[in-house]
Nucleic acid binder design. Structure first.
Lengths: 147, 147
DNA sequence: TCAACATTGACAGCATACTGACTATCTGTA
DNA sequence: TACAGATAGTCAGTATGCTGTCAATGTTGA
């Protein structure tokens, strides 16, 4: 009999939901959601990317990203600026407020990680991270049998 | 600087998205989504639960579950029957077709797991499962400081 | 019995995530 | 230059997941 409860997919979805809920609690006061936080975090590293570039960097769907930016623009954390050499594109820039949040929000993320991985040792967390990276992006010849 | 890309939360969300996409591919022919599959899998184990019971068993939000059942009812895989002793509640039952899908869909799930964990050894998959279980449900005194 | 409280499921509303279609614009080539 | 094809971003549509609210029904205790 198929054991959903212990399947990797089911456990990933529940782990993800727990991570989301914990981070949500920590950043609630800033009226942000976890994906919005993640997008800001990418911009802290590199500002002024186009939506397509951001979408690739953050592995976020192009249309999903559009909505995220709409909402972050409405709360005044980022702004769309016309691209100087491509009239189709926008460059997404942090506002001053968006940049100022890096410190406090990073602390929220650190607290969240601590709560989330409360039951694991540091070594286990590193192992988990390594395995999740493999899960996410594993690209072997087997993935592209036709190539 | 905060490193989103290697944070456990970000990696969980991407791993989950990949697991979803792979399973989606495998079960597409049955016109099912991964959460719908998971719900069926709980019913294969125990049929006739109420929505609240199913919601607890599957750790699925009560209102989300309502929608899932609506759609599975529409595609003829489950049906709502009035609860014999509680006029507020329904018992959710598999239809014949819903029961028949257990074999083929379980195979889809097995193939999905193989593709998802392609880059990991069997031992690593077990380790990953163990750690995800801890992540999901870790309940220590620290989670309930007020109790 | 009856009033207070709890539970069940529905509904509205919002944010994410993805598909497919569309417009505007850019690029490469004849 | 002019045109075919590629690319940037939007929009509509659908499913999930969650919050809050509500009506109907159950349950419990005075």
């Amino acid at each position: 009999m198929y054991d959903v409860e212990n399947s990797i997919g089911f456990l990933l979805s529940k782990g993800y939901q727990r991570a989301w809920a914990l981070l949500r609690e920590e950043i609630e006061q800033y009226e942000l959601t976890p994906p919005q936080f993640a997008l800001l975090a990418f911009l802290w590293r590199e500002d002024g990317l186009t939506q397509t570039e951001l979408s690739e960097a953050g592995q976020i769907d192009r249309t999903t990203l559009g909505g995220l930016i709409d909402r972050l623009e409405k709360t005044g954390l980022v702004e769309r600026r016309p691209h100087p050499r491509d009239r189709r594109a926008y460059q997404i820039h942090l506002t001053t407020r968006g940049r100022e949040l890096e410190g406090p929000l990073s602390e929220c993320a650190t607290r969240t990680l601590a709560r989330l991985t409360n039951g694991l040792t540091e070594t286990e967390v590193s192992e988990l991270r390594r395995m999740l990276i493999i899960l996410r992006g594993e690209r072997t010849v087997y993935d592209f049998p036709a190539c």
